[in-house]
Every structure is written in structure tokens, then in C-alpha cells.
């Protein structure tokens, strides 16, 4: 392939790694655990460009000056009322196979979820931390209704006999769960998209691994469009020194069209997506 082109200026990088990687210096430094690495290797010096960056600069024939910044994209305003946004969000999400229950009172949300689970003969359910703050005691309630409720990740212990970490035990448990309940931090009306930001909310696996994903959404978190969403998170969670570990956009259930371009639902993620929009 492009290997013929190796006429290195940065021979150190490509040769040392070619055939026997574990012995090479740069790789070893990557393999040392963080705690040790801090002592043994200095922090990466960002002022001194790597050989590849120097070659890129040479290819561009560019000095090392800062580029003139791009103009900020104009913020798009939308006059759509909350009611308009709710109905647009509902219509768009339904088009791609999601279900929406608009304007549910919080107390009745818990009962409706329990009914849904019973109707699907679900026995095990996982509830994310965010749900607890929106529907206090939701976990207790579901347990009282006879469902097996997966504890949150922080309640898992290190198993010294098997060596299984809390994270591994949590994953193993979740794989056998029938439904996952999470909240969403935002929604985008004109594409029917839920936006889940990681933080205290551990949504990553609960919204993905079980075949049914139930999502709670506060009505005032529905934004008109993607541009507004990006604008909000850019000035919000992403303006902090440490951006959220993961932000996930969910638009409908998992789908594929890889066999004869025929739409098929539920290939790797949930087959069913149910949203409850909470009115207060």
C-alpha cells in the first residue's frame, strides 16, 4: 500500500514501530499506567511540533502563525412556541419509529412506565440516576411492583474472588435487562432527536443495551433545531475545562438497511423507543 512512500524525515517514528512493536520506545511509554507515567515521562510538550505536524506545515507552505479565526456561525432564532415544538418533536420522532406520550404528569409517568413493562412481560429494569431526580423513589416504586431493578453503577462492589470490577459486573447485569429508563437533557424538535449528556446521569448503557428504552423529557428542554442545541451546549457543558465524557443523540430506535436496503429495526440497540414528555 502506501508503505513504498516511506522516505522518512521522521524515521524514528515509523521504523521503530514497524515489525516488533512492544520493544519500541514510544509504544512502551504508552503502555505504562498513568500513575507511573507521570514520573517517568515528561508531559507532552505541545509547543514543539511532532514530525508529522512539521511535515504538514511544510506541505502547506505555511508559517507557524495562528490562523485568523473563523467567523462565528449566526445563531438561528426560532419563534416556535413550546406547544409547536412538542408537536413537531412528536411528529418527527414518530416518523422514524419512536413513540411519544406528550404531556404526562410526573406522578402518572411512573405508573404508565410500570404498565408498559407489564404489558411487555418485562421482569428486569434498569433506571438511571437522572430518573431518580425527576421521579423521586422511582427505583423503589418499580421494585415494589415486582420488577428486578438493577442498582446504579456506584453500588456495585469489586469482587475479590473473581477479580471482576464494578464496571464489568454492571455490564454483565445490564445485558440481561429487559428495559432501560433514562432522562434526556435536551431534545431537538425538527429532527425528533433526544440528547443525553453524561455526568451524574449514566445513560450510556441503559439507553442502549436493553431492547426497550424509555426516556423522560422535560417539555421546556425541547429546542427548535440542531443549531440551537449546539449553541446551548457549546456555551454550557462544553465551555467547561472538562467537557462531558459523552453526549449521545438518539433519533428513533436502532435501525439498519444493510440487506437489500430494507429497513429493519433493532439491530444492535433498542427495538423500541418510548418517550414521555413531562409537563411540569
Amino acid at each position: 500500500m502506501a508503505t513504498e512512500k516511506v522516505e522518512n524525515t521522521d524515521a524514528k517514528v515509523s521504523r521503530s514501530s514497524s515489525a516488533v512493536p512492544p520493544a519500541s520506545d514510544h509504544l512502551n511509554s504508552a503502555l505504562i499506567p498513568d500513575t507511573l507515567r507521570l514520573e517517568s515521562t515528561p508531559a507532552p510538550d505541545t509547543r514543539r511540533p511532532t514530525p508529522m505536524l512539521s511535515r504538514i506545515r511544510a506541505a502547506l507552505g505555511r508559517g507557524d502563525h495562528e490562523p485568523n479565526p473563523l467567523e462565528r456561525l449566526p445563531r438561528t432564532y426560532s419563534e416556535a412556541s413550546i406547544d409547536d415544538r412538542i408537536s413537531l418533536f412528536t411528529a418527527e420522532l414518530c416518523k422514524v419509529g419512536g413513540n411519544v406520550e406528550p404531556l404526562v404528569d410526573r406522578r402518572s409517568a411512573t405508573t404508565q412506565i410500570a404498565e408498559m413493562l407489564k404489558a411487555r412481560a418485562a421482569t428486569a429494569v434498569a433506571v438511571s440516576n437522572g430518573v431518580e431526580s425527576l421521579l423521586p423513589n422511582a427505583r423503589e416504586y418499580f421494585a415494589g411492583q415486582g420488577f428486578q431493578v438493577t442498582p446504579s453503577l456506584s453500588e456495585f462492589q469489586f469482587d475479590s474472588s473473581s477479580g471482576e470490577t464494578p464496571a464489568e459486573a454492571y455490564k454483565r447485569t445490564l445485558i440481561n435487562v429487559d428495559a432501560g429508563v433514562t432522562t434526556a437533557d435536551y431534545a431537538i424538535a425538527d429532527t425528533g432527536t433526544l440528547v443525553l449528556v453524561s455526568g451524574s446521569e449514566q445513560h450510556r448503557l441503559i439507553s442502549l443495551v436493553p431492547p426497550l428504552h424509555i426516556c423522560l423529557l422535560k417539555q421546556d428542554s425541547i429546542l427548535p433545531n440542531l443549531a440551537e442545541l449546539i449553541y446551548r451546549v457549546n456555551d454550557g457543558p462544553y465551555s467547561k475545562t472538562r467537557p462531558p465524557l459523552v453526549m449521545t443523540f438518539i433519533t428513533g430506535p436502532s435501525r439498519t438497511a444493510d440487506i437489500e436496503l430494507t429497513l429493519t429495526i433493532g439491530v444492535h440497540g433498542p427495538r423500541e423507543l418510548q418517550v414521555f414528555i413531562c409537563s411540569q
Partner: peptide, 20 residues
């Protein structure tokens, strides 16, 4: 209009009780 899933990933977990 939008793909089913879009993920923005920024770095790795800092605590053992984080996911990922």
C-alpha cells in the same frame, strides 16, 4: 434528517464508577 445515533466522545473516564 438525522442518523439514529450520534456520539460526541471527549476523553476517558476519570473514576472507576464512571461508564465507558
Amino acid at each position: 434528517k438525522m442518523s439514529s445515533y450520534v456520539s460526541f466522545i471527549s476523553g476517558v473516564k476519570t473514576s472507576p464508577i464512571d461508564e465507558g
